[in-house]
Amino acid sequence: MKRGVKKQKSTTGSIRIISGKWRGRKLPVLDAQGLRPTTDRNKETLFNWLMPYINESCCLDMFAGSGSLGFEALSRHASAVVFMELEKSAWQIIKNNLDKLQVSEQQTKVLQGNSLELCKTLDEKFDLIFIDPPFNAGLVPKSIETIEALDLAAPDCLVYIECEAQNQHFQVPENWHCIKEKATQSVSSKLFQIN
């Protein structure tokens, strides 16, 4: 069943899928305040880190925005992705792009609303969780608390956190181990494994 393609706000940009079955495909994205797709360079670094883990993984994209990280995961043979997005127009574009790519509805859920509240509705555990929220909204610590409180992590789950450089010194539980990290002047990227 089609997800339904609706009229949306004008899109002014695109994201590119770097590798996998949709390599090179460009997908439209919404130009909205706070929507900040992960750059190709950061995405390439991240998915190089994830290469041994991504195949057949169940993923949660908590602040999907353009859906860039979730689409890249699906392209590289993740088995399922749950996308969460607050902005209704961006949520609709994710749905439209999944239709364009002919992704099975069994493989994806696209949830619209406050991610921290939506997490309470989930009944699965995840192998890979992306936390890439709007900057300067204080959402990283709250996301970590939510994942822990709701027990959303499967054994050996990986959690990727991208945030503004000045707020990179957030606390994580003792069983979260940073296995990769990279920082620029403005952005911090960290990959944790939960043991």
Score class of each variant (00 low, 15 high):
residue 77 H to W: 14
residue 87 E to K: 06
residue 127 D to Q: 11
residue 103 V to W: 00
residue 145 E to P: 07
residue 171 Q to A: 14
residue 170 F to V: 10
residue 92 Q to R: 02
residue 130 F to S: 11
residue 146 T to D: 04
residue 168 Q to S: 14
residue 141 P to A: 05
residue 95 K to F: 03
residue 172 V to T: 12
residue 98 L to I: 13
residue 165 A to E: 02
residue 73 A to I: 04
residue 149 A to F: 12
residue 137 A to P: 00
residue 107 Q to F: 10
residue 156 D to V: 05
residue 163 C to I: 06
residue 115 S to D: 11
residue 64 A to Y: 07
residue 151 D to N: 15
residue 78 A to F: 15
residue 107 Q to C: 15
residue 180 K to H: 11
residue 75 S to K: 05
residue 107 Q to R: 13
residue 104 S to Q: 10
residue 109 K to Y: 03
residue 68 S to D: 04
residue 126 F to D: 02
residue 65 G to I: 04
residue 79 S to N: 13
residue 166 Q to C: 00
residue 129 I to F: 11
residue 113 G to R: 05
residue 166 Q to I: 00
residue 130 F to R: 09
residue 117 E to F: 09
residue 138 G to F: 07
residue 158 L to K: 13
residue 67 G to E: 11
residue 90 A to L: 00
residue 64 A to P: 04
residue 165 A to Q: 07
residue 92 Q to T: 00
residue 171 Q to I: 12
residue 92 Q to K: 02
residue 121 T to G: 10
residue 129 I to G: 10
residue 65 G to Q: 06
residue 115 S to T: 08
residue 66 S to M: 06
residue 68 S to L: 02
residue 146 T to Q: 12
residue 118 L to D: 13
residue 120 K to A: 14
residue 98 L to H: 08
residue 171 Q to H: 15
residue 118 L to H: 10
residue 85 E to G: 03
residue 118 L to W: 13
residue 84 M to K: 03
residue 145 E to W: 13
residue 81 V to M: 08
residue 175 N to E: 14
residue 104 S to N: 12
residue 147 I to S: 05
residue 157 C to Q: 13
residue 85 E to S: 05
residue 128 L to T: 03
